[in-house]
Design a protein around this nucleic acid. Structure first.
Length: 110
DNA sequence: GGGTGGGCTTGTA
DNA sequence: TTACAAGCCCACC
């Protein structure tokens, strides 16, 4: 991440890169920003307090287990947003999470 | 300016 | 499936 950017900024920027119809996990972001999956807690904080709720698709971030986890506006809301993008939701978990999982290190990360 | 607690998590037993 | 422990950042006092 950029030195001039803070942890929160780095997290938000990564989430912004998530394309529609795709989702990622807190651990992935935490690994990209801090390199520690335990930082996922901090990632959630950054998303929960995202200063750009209209630019940061925090609803595209779910748990590593596929569970939606939580949402400041409400889990139900998060589910609707994901379904609106074409992502299937089973109860409180994302179906075929491995297929919609978006990887940051996929390309351009050399 | 310093110390403590909470949160949209993760992994193991 | 449930319960416990670890590490990280922000807000409050």
């Amino acid at each position: 991440m950029d030195e001039g950017e803070t942890f929160q900024e780095a997290v938000l920027k990564l989430v912004m890169q998530i394309p529609k119809g795709r989702v990622t996990t807190y651990g992935r972001i935490a690994n990209e920003v801090k390199g520690s999956v335990h930082a996922a807690r901090a990632v959630g904080q950054a998303l929960a307090k995202n200063p750009h709720p209209g630019v940061i698709p925090c609803h595209r971030v779910v748990r590593s287990d596929g569970d939606i986890g939580g949402y400041s506006q409400g889990i139900a809301k998060k589910i609707e947003l994901l379904r609106a993008e074409g992502i299937e939701i089973e109860g409180r978990k994302v179906k075929k999470i491995n297929e919609v999982l978006f990887q940051f290190s996929s390309v351009g990360r050399g």
